[in-house]
């Protein structure tokens, strides 16, 4: 099945694209993130990214379905 990943902020620069599609099985968001980070090592393993599944905040335990959109945002601290 296919899922769309949308990269926000610096993650778009690190991935070199604002969005791309991945062909994966019925995996959880946490596993999908590992696949993403393997492809784009700039998106660091230890950084707590904010992840949305179809526009709603998601956690690593949620399972994704065909056609889902997963958005990844970095934490931001400045002010």
């Amino acid at each position: 099945m296919r899922v769309r990943i949308k990269y926000f902020a610096k993650y778009a620069d690190l991935a070199g694209t604002r969005q791309e599609e991945f062909e994966v099985g019925h995996i959880k968001i946490g596993e999908l993130l590992r696949v993403v980070k393997e492809k784009h090592p700039g998106i660091r393993e230890n950084e707590s990214a904010l992840v949305a599944l179809n526009g709603k905040y998601g956690n690593e335990e949620q399972t994704i379905s065909d056609g889902d959109t997963v958005s990844i945002f970095p934490p931001v601290s400045g002010g």
Partner: peptide, 23 residues
């Protein structure tokens, strides 16, 4: 509504300063 700790927003540390990260 949800609060800042309801999601994975870091709850400690300085983060990266505006001078380093740029703004």
């Amino acid at each position: 509504t949800s609060c800042l700790s309801c999601f994975e927003y870091p709850d400690e540390g300085e983060g990266i300063s505006c001078t380093v990260q740029g703004v």
